[in-house]
Design a protein around this nucleic acid. Structure first.
Lengths: 134, 134
DNA sequence: ACAAAAGTACGACGATTGTCGTTGACAAAC
DNA sequence: GTTTGTCAACGACAATCGTCGTACTTTTGT
């Protein structure tokens, strides 16, 4: 019963999704006003994109009020995973190590996250090696 | 800096770039035949995209022969860095740790690369512990 | 009660993308 | 030396995207 293919959000759609992931849900007006902070765009443009996203199944719309309330249909992690896999395949020849190395060396990461990454790394290495470290 | 904007390759353009990165350079015919293995497409389509890429500055064209020879204008790493930064900003709220964690947990990475990642991690962590950034 | 504001729906538009077909120049084969 | 094949160039096409204006309906304010 799992859904078919989750659709690929476009640039503008992704901007809206990020707002929804952060704020939970909102009306077109609310979403638009957040969007308008960083991007000069008309209200109807935001509306139209939201409508398109509804058709595509990217967002869910509650029409019980006159001002419809939108929320993301997929969790951030799900979409991120999809897009990451996409980029991996399309630009990194499917080599995740290269991607990770570039991400780490090119973008500042907080110590907390570095520690967490190390934890995952420990887990992965102990699993594949089953021996002490070198 | 002489950093003009490097143009964003589209989907089809990126496929061609990957071929060029792997094979170094080639004529439209050669590129097309590799491309046609995984994607049914016409010769003139490949040609047209290559021409567009030349205009955009994504590839360089040697016209000394009748069959022009194309090569990538930018190294793979440069383009990857650009696209990775893009995805980071557009889908991960600019949080590289999240991206790395997802990449590691969702995609199998070779032990050699895991070791290399650990090296980078060691370097990053020791740096933040001893002296702050400059 | 009526006008203003807010909201959705719809259509149009220019730009971009990927797709081909056709044309004309040139080279190769016969 | 014709004919056949190869190649770059160009134009046309449908689809998609982001943009917005307009129309119509429902609230809200006075």
């Amino acid at each position: 019963m799992s859904k078919y293919k989750l659709p690929r959000p476009t640039e503008a759609e992704l901007e809206i999704l990020q707002i929804l992931w952060e704020h939970g849900s909102g009306t077109v007006r609310e979403i638009h006003e957040i969007l308008a902070i960083t991007k000069k765009t008309g209200y109807t443009t935001t509306l139209k994109i939201l409508q398109k996203m509804t058709d595509k199944g990217l967002v869910k719309r509650n029409e019980s009020q006159r001002s419809h309330i939108y929320e993301a249909a997929f969790q951030a992690e799900q979409t991120q995973k999809q897009l990451l896999g996409d980029l991996l395949k399309r630009a990194f020849s499917g080599d995740p190590g290269k991607l990770v190395l570039q991400a780490l060396s090119e973008h500042k990461t907080s110590p907390e996250e570095l520690a967490e990454i190390r934890k995952v790394l420990d887990d992965l290495e102990s699993r594949t090696k089953k021996r002490g470290k070198k």
